Amino acid sequence: MILKTRRQFINVMAVASVALAAPSILYAQDTPWAEVGYDRILVANTNGDRLAVRFRTGQRYDASNLQRLNWLWRDWRDGGAQRQIDPLLFGDLALIQTRMSLDFGEPKLILINSGFRTAGRNATIEGAARNSQHVQGRACDFNMVGVSPALVVGYAESYGVHGLGQYSDFTHIDVGPPNRRWTG
C-alpha cells in the first residue's frame, strides 16, 4: 500500500494504533488471564483439588459452577461433607484475587486451607467459634500463593470484607455480620 499524502498516512496510523490498543482497552475492564477476573476464580484446596470457573455472568450466578465450588469447599477432612457456600464469598475472593493479580502482573492462585466445616470437625479445632461462619458455609481460611498474609489482609480490608482475621500463616474472610476484625 502506497500512501500518497500525509493525511492518508495519519489516517492509517490512527487506525493501526486503535487496533493495537484494542487488547489493552478490553483488559482495562478485566484481567488478561482467562482464570482470574471479577466474575471468576482460580482456586485450589489443600487436598489437591483445583478449579478455574466463572461463577457469575452479570447479575446471574452460574448454578453449575457454584456446585463445583461448593464441592471444592467441602470438608474433605470429615468424609467430604458439603453445603451450599454463600456466593458472596466467591465475589469477595475474586475481587481480592483480581486486584492482586493485576498489581503483581501475574495470576495469583487462592489456596483454601479451610472452607466449609462440619460442626463435629469445627468442635475439634482449637479456638474455633462454636457458631463459626465456616459451619454456615460463609467463610474460608486461605493463602494467596506467593503473597504474605499481612498483604492479603491489606487488600481485603480495602474492599471492606465483613469478617477479616489475620493470622501468621493464613487469612480468614467471611460474609457474616459486618465490621469484625481480629488477629490470631
Rank of each mutant, 00 (worst) to 15 (best):
Q59E: 15
P107N: 08
L72R: 00
L151T: 15
D78N: 09
T5D: 11
N179M: 05
S168P: 06
R99D: 15
I125Q: 03
R50T: 10
D78K: 01
A94K: 08
V15W: 09
W76T: 09
G115H: 09
Y159K: 12
L66A: 07
V152P: 10
S64G: 09
L3R: 14
F104S: 09
E157C: 06
L20Q: 11
C140G: 07
I25P: 00
N113G: 14
L164M: 06
R138W: 01
L42P: 08
W76Q: 06
V161H: 00
A19V: 11
A19K: 05
L51N: 04
L95E: 15
T171M: 04
T5Y: 11
A139T: 00
T31F: 04
D86H: 01
P178R: 13
T31R: 02
F90I: 03
L95M: 13
R138V: 02
W71G: 03
D39W: 01
R7A: 15
V15N: 08
I112T: 08
A28G: 15
E126D: 07
G163T: 01
A34C: 11
T46E: 11
Q133S: 09
E35G: 13
Y27I: 07
D62Y: 12
L72T: 04
Q29G: 13
L66H: 10
G80K: 05
T118A: 05
P149I: 01
P87W: 03
R181H: 08
E126W: 07
D39H: 13
P149A: 06
L93W: 06
R83D: 06
T5K: 11
M1T: 13
E157F: 07
V152A: 15
K4N: 14
H134S: 02
P149H: 05
F170E: 10
P178K: 05
G137F: 02
S132D: 07
L69A: 10
N70W: 06
Q97F: 03
Q136Y: 02
K4M: 15
G127C: 10
R121C: 02
S148K: 12
M1I: 11
Q84T: 11
G137V: 00
G176R: 02
L20E: 09
V145P: 03
Q166C: 11
Y38G: 12
V15R: 08
R74M: 06
K108I: 14
D92H: 14
D92Y: 10
G105K: 02
Q97W: 06
G80C: 04
L88I: 11
Q97I: 03
H172R: 03
A44F: 04
G79E: 14
D49N: 08
D141A: 09
R6V: 13
L42G: 14
I112A: 04
A81F: 00
Q82S: 12
V145Y: 04
D141Y: 05
T46L: 04
P177S: 15
S168C: 05
F170H: 15
I85C: 01
N113E: 05
S168H: 15
I85R: 04
D49K: 07
T98M: 12
F90K: 01
I25Q: 12
R40V: 03
E157G: 09
S64L: 13
T124R: 03
L3V: 14
V147E: 10
G37W: 08
A156G: 08
A14G: 12
A128Q: 02
S17P: 00
C140F: 01
E126I: 09
L42W: 14
G91D: 15
Y159A: 15
G160I: 02
I173P: 02
H172W: 03
G48M: 00
A81T: 01
R121N: 09
